[in-house]
Design a protein around this nucleic acid. Structure first.
Lengths: 210, 210
DNA sequence: GGAATAGTGTCTTTAAGACATTATCCA
DNA sequence: TGGATAATGTCTTAAAGACACTATTCC
């Protein structure tokens, strides 16, 4: 090994989901000092025999036991004393998970993952509030031009539900007719044979992403 | 220090400029093994007392003696044996420099920086061809929605020159009247009192970015 | 038939793309 | 006055935004 500076390399992940029309983020409670008992973003040390991408997927799988899609690098955090113990550089990713998938897995594995409403998250360990804020900005930006909203949606959904989800992330309102027009020209979705059930009004047709 | 895995953290930079209407990239010839005598992207080891951003700026300043704008993270490269000696993770940035600025500085400092036409770059050291390719994709993407073309332009330029520069990076042709219209509505530019000189035809008005 | 939400059509405004003529400077 | 490029206006087409009515299901 060379005589040179080595740093500890961590990957941290901001995992978003939507629960009850509200954006949530996965947090874990720290079991050891520093910041014992304080919530933080899930993360892990880069092992010598794995790539950064593998490390991120390992963290995600460890916490959810589900394959998360759209795992995206958005920033690195390398302030000198962001970890009070020694020098740690964080390579930070965000990802998205369907609440549906998570629920299924949770029943089958007794996972104790904890999602918190984005708007109500308080002080986190280390500089994780800054990481969280940067991830949210990147998420909003990516949503504005791509179709990644699909990674939030359940397998089947109505147009109204899609609109609700979009509005909850963008934090703004869309006009119903124009939204339907936009969705049909920009997203690859198709009607299914399913409709809403047990609703006291005309049931909506359910769509799916192709 | 903890008993844990430490890796060497490098920053690598793909520095773009336009010379004679053609996209160029800064390369440096390696003086030591491995890949001795082979060209590579400029880069540097992250020192213990600096942030990643500082390390990138240090590399850029070392090579150019000019302040480069739009320094942007685009990817990390962490394959296990990308450096044949030991484990090195690269955090990769791209940046842009005005050829003008560089020329001025070159005369005053005898810098020996070498830019190569992007299209003619051959085999580079390590996985730097992959880094270069990823940077170019990111550059094209960013150019398509932002006004970062301004970082390539000289202080004063004609609309035709701006069009030439855009065409050389996008690798496509634009219709002159529509291009002028687009530029005037999307970029913050203004006329200067200067015009082209010594041209055997009507001289173009020179503009500047605000 | 009434309540409730689903689903759609049209008009207006804005941006993009195709296209040709006039303007200015130099020799 | 001829050569060369600069500069600009209008028509057409596509997308975005505002807006109101009809359709379907349940009770």
């Amino acid at each position: 090994m060379p005589k040179a500076s080595f740093v500890q390399l961590w990957v941290d992940v901001v995992l978003f989901t939507i629960i009850h029309q509200e954006l949530h983020v996965l947090l874990v409670k720290r079991g050891t000092a520093p910041y014992q008992g304080v919530y933080s973003l899930p993360g892990g040390l880069l092992a010598l025999e794995e790539t950064v991408e593998q490390a991120v997927n390992k963290v995600l799988y460890r916490e959810t036991h589900v394959l998360c899609e759209h795992v995206k690098l958005f920033w690195t955090f390398s302030a000198l004393h962001r970890d009070p113990r020694w020098r740690v550089v964080s390579i930070s990713y965000y990802s998205i998970i369907r609440h549906d998938d998570l629920l299924l897995k949770k029943w089958s594995t007794q996972l104790a993952v904890e999602f918190f409403p984005f708007k109500k998250i308080g002080e986190l360990a280390f500089d994780h509030n800054a990481i969280l804020a940067a991830a949210y900005l990147q998420l909003q930006d990516d949503l504005s031009w791509s179709d990644i909203i699909k990674y939030f949606m359940p397998k089947r959904f109505s147009l109204a539900q899609l609109q609700d989800y979009c509005e909850s992330i963008y934090n703004r309102h869309f006009e119903k007719r124009n939204f339907a027009k936009y969705v049909k020209t920009h997203f690859k979705i198709q009607k299914t044979i399913f409709k809403q059930e047990y609703v006291p009004h005309r049931p909506a047709i359910l769509y799916r992403f192709i």
